[in-house]
């Protein structure tokens, strides 16, 4: 069935080819190029030099890795905060709001169509001196508000804001995957509401929670606009370092090495989590 001559006999394989070609040329090849560049001597622009580990050594001797830690730390915090913020909402969308759920879901979707930097800029105008919040506080209570913009907290705030839908929707799917009869059965067997939640609802909705967390973490680790717009360069996330290396500093190999570090963290996470899921079951279950 899968001899060389009949490799394309399976219609699924034929259908997969176009997008596979795109991803091999536009995703795998660039990433391999980045890996290759990361072993080139600093400030070179070709792949034909003697490989070296100089870039990686520099990252750890120059404290550049601090930006990686910032990114990982902020992303982890974002995931935790979003999990707490979104769970009640996701629960409500599945179990409480009934026929209003569709409309509410649509409302939560709308921000996704607005470019993230526009929305973040909205927060700048909200928090800036003379902006919506300080202006209101001053006009109503005569209170002067301390600076919130351009702090690490503002960056975190922006990340929580931008990635909210990416936690909310997988979580909603996860909770919707728990059949109602499961909850009733647990209740009928004597479980209190809290026990139903802990023993049945939470473990059965973990796939949604995991995918949501993974998605938000990965996106947040790669966040760049939040620090630029809300952080005012006070925090340097790893993405910013990579960008500097690739653009102003013209040090591709260093930028590539930083990118490889980030890719390692992300791919280890993604691959371990994705390995656990059968996508047919999650997506096909209707």
């Amino acid at each position: 069935m899968s001899g060389d001559s009949s490799f394309l006999a399976q219609p699924g394989r034929r259908a997969a080819i176009p997008i596979m070609v795109l991803l091999l040329l536009g995703f795998v090849a660039p990433l391999l190029a980045v890996v290759g560049f990361s072993f080139m001597p600093p400030r070179t622009f070709g792949l034909w030099h003697e490989p070296s580990l100089e870039n990686y050594e520099r990252i750890f001797s120059d404290n550049t890795y601090v930006s990686l830690l910032w990114s990982l730390g902020l992303a982890s915090l974002t995931v935790v905060l979003l999990a707490l913020i979104c769970y009640p909402v996701a629960y409500g969308l599945v179990r409480v709001f009934g026929r209003w759920s569709t409309a509410l879901t649509l409302l939560f979707t709308i921000p996704l169509i607005v470019s993230e930097n526009i929305r973040l800029y909205g927060w700048v105008l909200f928090f800036i001196k003379g902006g919506v919040l300080p202006g209101t506080l001053k006009a109503l209570f005569g209170v002067e508000m301390g600076d919130f913009l351009f702090t690490p907290a503002a960056v975190l705030f922006g990340m929580v804001y931008v990635y909210l839908p990416f936690m909310l929707f997988p979580m909603t799917l996860g909770i919707a995957m728990v059949p109602n009869q499961m909850r009733e059965a647990a209740r009928d067997l004597g479980a209190s509401r809290w026990q139903v939640f802990r023993e049945v609802e939470l473990p059965l909705s973990t796939p949604g929670l995991m995918i949501g967390s993974l998605l938000t973490f990965v996106l947040a680790v790669g966040a760049i606009a939040e620090a630029k717009v809300l952080g005012g360069q006070r925090i340097i996330p790893i993405t910013h370092d990579i960008e500097i290396a690739f653009t102003y500093a013209q040090n591709w190999p260093l930028g590539a090495a930083l990118a490889v570090l980030l890719m390692l963290v992300v791919s280890v996470l993604v691959l371990t989590v994705l390995k656990r899921f059968d996508l047919d079951q999650i997506l096909g279950k209707r």
Binding site: P179, M182, E184, A185, D188, G190, E199, P203
Partner: peptide, 20 residues
């Protein structure tokens, strides 16, 4: 009296066995 406080129990149509 809610279901969890009744000395009764139901076997569901779907059985509702906990898959985890």
């Amino acid at each position: 009296t809610p279901a969890n406080e009744r000395p009764t129990c139901m076997v569901f149509q779907s059985l509702a066995l906990f898959p985890h």
